[in-house]
């Protein structure tokens, strides 16, 4: 309903209360702790841009801003490389000269995990099906050492502008930007690896905030449409993958209907895909094998969930597939 989307700060608290998430209490361990974490903002995390900044240069950048008082402190983020939690307001970090010249990218630590699961390699041909604003694209380009081909696709014109600005700021040269609806991405070219970090209800990235675009009402039609789109995107991603290729499907949401249910559905549809465990170490929760009376393919146990009270970042879900 439209009235629910009109910003009113007094609503923010109400929407952070556990009611919205109570549906998930049966599978989220320590649910009270989860609700507490979900209602507080995640730490400000920055990731060094290896294309522009050496570790020594980054160390002196961190020290400089401790000395001049911009940062109260910093520490490496757990389980992800090159990421640091910064004790400073996001606006302070975002305003720094070093941010504008692309020494680092501000991104949630859990956003790094789908890229680690994808494990991009130098010289490969990789598709990022839903790329804007581009944090994961830029990280992939770095891990590819800015070689090979990275196609960054994003259908939204406005968001593509942000994506292109991110690529410029990070100094990436190995990327082509395209504007297809992912489900209609031309199947004329096959890729070694594909990241599908597509549209989702974004419950995880709601952490500590209020969003005017978030579906607080759990609108059935909208959710069903979103889930249909997610499956279409997965089907097309599988068609675009080379034999032996790797596909990562990720969302920043907790809803099993957008996560395990989608993995189950694509496994039913496409027998050339199988899920595998990318072996990332961390306090993750395994994918759920059942939800609301529906049972999923046991392979979903090799997917993983990131919960904000177990890992101090945004909620995430990551499924890694291999194509035979």
């Amino acid at each position: 309903m439209v009235w629910a989307f009109v910003y009113n700060p007094s609503m923010a608290k109400a929407y952070q209360n556990p009611e919205y998430f109570s549906t998930y209490s049966e599978f989220i361990p320590n649910f009270d702790k989860f609700c507490q974490a979900q209602s507080t903002p995640p730490p400000v995390v920055i990731r060094r841009n290896q294309l522009k900044c050496t570790q020594a240069g980054f160390d002196s950048f961190l020290k400089r801003h401790i000395d001049n008082g911009a940062f109260k402190g910093f520490r490496p983020a757990d389980f992800v490389d090159d990421c640091y939690e910064i004790d400073a307001a996001k606006s302070t970090v975002g305003g720094l000269l070093e941010h504008h010249v692309g020494f680092f990218y501000i991104m949630g630590a859990s956003s790094v995990l789908p890229v680690m699961a994808l494990d991009p390699k130098e010289g490969e041909q990789i598709l990022d099906m839903s790329a804007a604003p581009g944090g994961k694209t830029c990280l992939m380009a770095q891990l590819m050492n800015d070689r090979g081909l990275l196609v960054a696709n994003e259908p939204s014109h406005l968001r593509r502008r942000v994506l292109k600005a991110s690529l410029d700021r990070m100094g990436v040269s190995n990327t082509f930007v395209t504007s297809f609806l992912g489900e209609a991405f031309p199947a004329t070219h096959k890729f070694d690896r594909i990241l599908l970090d597509g549209p989702c209800s974004a419950e995880g990235s709601l952490r500590g905030g209020w969003s005017k675009s978030f579906d607080y009402e759990r609108n059935g039609e909208y959710r069903a449409g979103l889930q249909r789109l997610q499956l279409k995107l997965l089907k097309r991603a599988s068609e675009l993958l080379k034999p032996g290729g790797r596909l990562v499907y990720s969302t920043c949401t907790y809803d099993p209907l957008e996560n395990e249910a989608q993995v189950d559905a694509i496994l039913k549809h496409d027998q050339s895909l199988s899920v595998f465990d990318p072996g990332l170490v961390g306090p993750w929760q395994s994918g759920l094998t059942s939800w609301q009376g529906r049972h999923y393919n046991p392979q979903v146990q090799q997917t993983f969930r990131v919960l904000p009270h177990l890992y101090n970042s945004w909620g995430f879900f990551v499924a890694t597939f291999i194509k035979q």
Partner: peptide, 11 residues
């Protein structure tokens, strides 16, 4: 790429 519209190529 055949029939492929690319909006931005490289740096």
């Amino acid at each position: 790429f055949e029939n492929f519209e690319i909006e931005k190529r490289g740096l």
